[in-house]
Amino acid sequence: METVLFILFALGSIISAILVITTPAPINSALYLVVTFFCLAGFYVLLAAPLLAALQIIVYAGAVLVLIIFVIMLLNLQKIEEKTAPAWKSLGIIITLLFLGMGFMIVAMSTSLLGPMMQTPAGFGKVATIGELLFTKYLYPFEVVSVLLLLAIIGAVALIRKQEPE
């Protein structure tokens, strides 16, 4: 069952990810990105991380994608003329393949990673466990992140604001 679900989600995420970067119109890319995010949420459920699966759907598929689609609609972005020099395009694909090969090689060479998954300890991935870690061991980064979010709000407003004539 787990294997079938993994293959299903893997195919879905890879195909929609390729479609994200190949479709000419940005709105279609955004919609394919939603599919990728839902597949990733499925992986999180398979990996015993229900809280992160919920966050993935609420924050990424919900907030982030709505923001991106909102901007596409607001600016009425159509597909644009993308004349890339063929040399540059093939260079990009070569660099990508190098990345891919490097990833495969690292995974293949680290034989210590090939064992079966461990038995999960009690409470692994539960909301209570993550919450307790956030408010004890990781309290300091948690507070820093709240400051970062505040800065992002102020930064976004300051960037968008119309310049008043002097």
């Binding site: 993994f6 890319s29 991106i68 901007v71 597909k79 660099i95 393949l97 990345f99 495969f104 995974v107």
Partner: peptide, 30 residues
């Protein structure tokens, strides 16, 4: 059975697709 290496390979594939998108597209929002 699905092992850790399968997930890591899938992660590498998705990351590479992202790299390809950044390097080959000209539309900033894409």
């Amino acid at each position: 059975t699905i092992q850790l290496s399968h997930y890591l390979l899938l992660s590498a594939v998705l990351f590479s697709i992202g790299v390809a998108g950044v390097l080959t597209r000209k539309n900033l929002i894409v």
